[in-house]
Write a protein that binds this DNA or RNA. Structure first.
Length: 569
RNA sequence: CGGGCCGUAGCGCAGCUUGGAUAGCGCGCUUGCUUGGGGUGCAAGAGGUCCCCGGUUCGAAUCCGGGCGGCCCGACCA
């Protein structure tokens, strides 16, 4: 491809509204353009990269025996009503009506359609296992699209579904996907962490996310050198024991004028350090107050609380509701002596004594509280949010906390869809059994964006060789010098003849412009043909990622570049 | 959904507070010359529903009301 004939609209300046590096650079380097909020056009270079990602996906899915489908994006509401998700999923789904007024939606995923096909097409255990997948567009009406292509409303997903006779089969299919995913992301040039995740609304027994570390990420991950890694919503850490003073007798009530926060009480003479306080939160669940207790210096993890409460429908109580429930305003609340109210306590409070907490009277606190003796805890649970730097639960070393982007997710679904949609097979004993399913997704645009997040510098993108839009860029520093033009053309054509994706920058532009564009677009290998060196019959071979530059005879350039390709990062 | 901000040429912005005549600037684009190893220089040009609708006014990019679109933070999130 000749640059002069290509649509490769690079921009000199960053788009004003971009924040994430991948957002800025993919726009500037001419890969993508916004069409609407969370709706993107992929220009030719992006399409090339997407195609290369697709090729990797097909190879690796094929390797685990998966078969490719292509399903519709437009779904009749009926199948989503069968699975129950028509009701359960809220505004995240695009819904529409046809001319007759029937309900449809644009697919967010394809459990329903694949399960419907499995129901009609699979009837015997002897047909299992099956792994089916597709690479297809997905729609999600994100409340807040952001970060360019990382979080958009229309995106491309490789979604796969496994169908097995039993849990053991599912374990095998799940493991195959885990291996395939590791190969896919590694081949795509991504460094990733696999973390255990909550199965969320999907149900099912196990799930894992593949996370790429990035400042533009939306998830916080806790990981340890020993291999432990978890999403912060689920992550745990070891809490070093706190030495409590020996206190005899009942809790003592004492005046604490003006004390409203944990820090206030920690500073207050006669108070207690944060790790010897009990923090009392009041939540309203089904219009009833529920108490949630944490150590003073700990933070609530709402995902864990949802599990503990058994519902995601709750809200913090208003100050008035606190007064009504406990007789004091926030800042003086406590659970000592509270009866007839659900009290959820964090595990870190177990066995603690001599603690300080609110006395349920404004400007009064209690000290000498023995949590298990003085508080009628109705349920103990892990409720606290683990923090970076705290000791790993497995090995005790400090946990690392980092932001990451989810590029893939694998789920053990079990029979959630097959039961609701009646997808069964006959087992060896002649009984109808629900198919045991798994589902596995990868966001293609996220692979592209993560590669940019991971591999860029001040000058631009530095694509992993495996997913670069072109493999080699031949830059003519002059469009007038015949030696330069002829040599460039010869090298470019020789590369094409050898099946290499070569881009020839033949534009009649200033050398600086072309070199800067080269660095911006980020093709991994560049052959630079300039009027000075060409007089000695030489050209340059430059590696974008490392900055390494080598002079080579022009007539050996194609050969040398070809040899260098497989060694690129 | 809560909070903040923004819509003026392809991109990035100024002008708006205090209404006024051909709406500016940089980049990009076109033509010619120049330069040719890191966004070269000179000259001439093209390009605008100032987001939309309504109002105030002799007069609106500017003031007022409504709407639409977009961004950022948070909430949310297979």
């Amino acid at each position: 491809m000749r640059w002069s004939q290509s649509f490769l609209p690079t921009l000199r300046e960053d788009p004003a509204d971009a924040e994430a590096a991948s957002h800025k650079l993919l726009v500037r380097a001419g890969f993508v353009r916004p069409v609407g909020a969370g709706i993107w056009a992929y220009l030719p270079p992006a399409q090339r990269t997407m195609n290369r990602i697709t090729a990797i996906l097909r190879e690796e899915m094929g390797r685990i025996g998966a078969q490719e489908f292509y399903l519709p994006a437009l779904h009749p509401a009926e199948i989503w009503k069968e699975s129950g998700r028509w009701q359960r999923i809220g505004a995240d789904m695009f819904r529409l009506k046809d001319r007759k007024g029937s309900d449809y939606c644009l697919g967010m995923t394809h459990e329903e359609v694949f399960t419907a096909i499995a129901r009609d097409g699979l009837s015997s255990y002897r047909q299992l296992p099956q792994i089916w997948y597709q690479i297809q567009v997905k729609f999600r009406d994100e409340p807040r699209p952001k970060s360019g292509v990382i979080r958009d409303r229309q995106f491309t997903m490789k979604d796969a579904y496994s169908f097995d006779v039993d849990e053991k089969g599912l374990d095998r299919s799940y493991d195959l996907h885990r291996q395939a995913y590791e190969r896919i992301f590694t081949r795509s040039g991504l460094a990733f962490t696999m973390v255990e995740a909550s199965s969320g609304a999907m149900g099912g027994s196990a799930s894992a996310e593949f996370i790429v570390e990035s400042a533009a990420g939306e998830d916080t991950i806790l990981s340890c050198a020993c291999g432990y890694a978890a999403n912060r919503e689920k992550g745990r850490s070891a809490v070093p024991p706190v030495q409590d003073p020996v206190v005899k007798g009942a809790p003592e009530r004492f005046p604490t004028p003006g004390v409203r926060t944990i820090e206030d009480l920690a500073r207050f003479v006669g108070g207690a350090p944060a790790d010897r306080q009990v923090k009392t939160l009041v939540m309203i669940v089904e219009s009833k107050p529920v108490l949630v207790l944490l150590r003073g210096d700990h933070t609530l993890e709402e995902e864990k609380m949802k599990t503990a409460l058994g519902t995601g429908t709750y809200r913090p109580a208003t100050p008035e509701e606190c007064v009504h429930a406990l007789g004091a305003h926030p800042g003086s609340l406590g659970a000592v002596g509270v009866k007839g109210m659900a009290i959820h306590a964090d595990e870190a409070l177990r066995g603690r004594r001599g603690m300080a907490t609110g006395a349920n009277a404004d400007d009064f606190h209690l000290r000498g509280v023995d949590v298990e003796r003085d508080i009628a805890v109705t349920a103990w649970a892990d409720l606290r949010q683990a923090q970076g730097g705290e000791p790993c639960v497995r090995c005790g070393k400090p946990l690392k906390a980092f932001k990451g982007i989810e590029v893939g997710h694998i789920f053990k679904l079990g029979t959630r869809y097959s039961e609701s949609m009646k997808a069964t097979v006959t087992d060896a004993g002649g009984r109808q059994i629900p198919i045991v399913m798994g589902s596995y997704g990868i966001g293609l645009e996220r692979i592209m964006a993560c590669a940019v997040e991971l591999w860029h510098d001040a000058k631009g993108i530095s694509w992993p060789a495996s997913i670069a839009p072109f493999q080699i860029l031949v830059t003519s520093l002059s469009a007038k010098d015949e030696g330069v033009v002829n040599t460039s053309r010869a090298i470019h054509e020789s590369l094409l003849a050898r099946g290499v994706d070569s881009l020839w920058d033949d534009r009649d532009a200033n050398a600086g412009v072309k070199l800067n564009d080269a660095d911006l677009v980020g093709i991994p290998l560049r052959i630079t043909v300039g009027p000075r060196k060409i007089k000695e019959g030489k050209v340059e071979l430059a590696v974008r990622r490392t900055g390494e530059v080598r002079e080579i005879p022009a007539d050996q350039a194609a050969e040398a570049a070809l040899a260098r390709l497989p060694t690129l990062p």
